[in-house]
Design a protein around this nucleic acid. Structure first.
Lengths: 208, 208
DNA sequence: GTCTATACGATGATAGAC
DNA sequence: GTCTATCATCGTATAGAC
């Protein structure tokens, strides 16, 4: 009867260790050790190490993306009612703020894991993440296309790739900077950093 | 007497396979198989799988970064002589064009590997790359700081992180797009894509 | 249905013969 | 310098206890 506890304990331990050490460097034995379950429980409940990662995504990403979708659709609808175009910044905010909320509400490990997986060299792992993100990326693309009708779809697509790269890298590093010029102590405020990111990306997308 | 050939053959095979399959998914046995050398030769010549990756970086990254450094220093010097400020776009070009040249001149595998490592979740691997890049990143920071004196150093540092994220992600993916909206067939011209990237990033850095 | 014990092939690393 | 042999550890698979 404690199979739910077992699954949740495995998910919690794996989320924490995958975020801290990366997928490939985390062994199933480390996960089952931290979760205090048997090694074979992972394969019984999830099937494989990769499927365990997928289950982590399912648990947190799907609800977060539903919230993002609702915000984006409300933004487009509201702009249409007023006969205006949606603002690029509002579209970016609808995409970024749910991630910020999750990160500040105890889901910091997960957001680090998301950023790492978006930048993942291993296409099999990246595919797990991207297949859940693709519909939302397409919606973001169409929303920004409405906001910036002067850009060709090809140009906008290229710029959105750059924008996602900047956003993914920011989420992935989450304040862990590798290079620090003399006298720089970066702000630790995630909300301010999110606004700076939105400002940067919006300027790039809106470039002539 | 063929130890030089052995080292070079291992480096070539490892560069190719690390770029194609990623570091963790490439086994030493696959590398030594392709290079047609004994498994233990890797540890004799390089010491470990990680040290092999580091040797790959040393072989290509150090010459490329010397070229970047010369371009950046020439840019700053030329602007000072004319009593002007360097242009953000020129600084970005000095940084990006050597990578583009290498990619188009047969070093495509290496540039893919660089992009992958910049986005690498494993801090040990990422550190190998970052320690070689740090001096150049600092020079890029100081150059852009001269180009944009109105920005505080904290603001500029944050924006440069976003910019490096966009650049790294672009190099990492190198035309392999995961999401393609209806009717989009992205340009395959690397030079045009590099200019679009410079345009995007410059707009973000120069935002008010 | 849940969970455990145990074993399998492959991996990175190492020691020592030549 | 090069090679063979060997090691601990990895993800995975399965048989069987409760």
């Amino acid at each position: 009867m404690n199979h739910i506890d077992t699954k949740e304990r495995i998910l919690d331990a794996a989320e924490h260790l995958f975020a801290r050490d990366g997928f490939h460097r985390t062994s199933l034995r480390a996960i089952t050790g931290e979760a205090r379950v048997n090694l074979a429980a992972v394969h019984y409940h999830f099937g494989s190490k990769e499927a365990l990662l997928d289950a982590i995504f399912e648990r947190r990403l799907d609800p977060m993306n539903r919230s993002r979708r609702e915000s984006l659709e409300a933004l487009v609808e509201s702009a249409r009612r007023k006969g205006e175009r949606p603002a690029v910044r509002d579209a970016l905010r609808a995409f970024i703020l749910p991630a910020l909320s999750l990160a500040e509400g105890g889901g910091g490990d997960f957001m680090t894991l998301v950023g790492r997986t978006f930048a993942e060299p291993d296409d099999a792992l990246r595919g797990l993440f991207m297949s859940r993100m693709q519909p939302l990326f397409l919606l973001l693309f169409e929303t920004v296309a409405e906001a910036l009708p002067a850009l060709s779809r090809e140009t906008l697509f290229g710029r959105l790739q750059f924008a996602l790269g900047a956003m993914g890298h920011t989420m992935c590093r989450r304040g862990r900077f590798s290079i620090l010029p003399e006298g720089i102590s970066p702000t630790g405020d995630p909300a301010a950093q999110a606004e700076a990111l939105i400002h940067f990306v919006a300027a790039g997308l809106e470039a002539p």
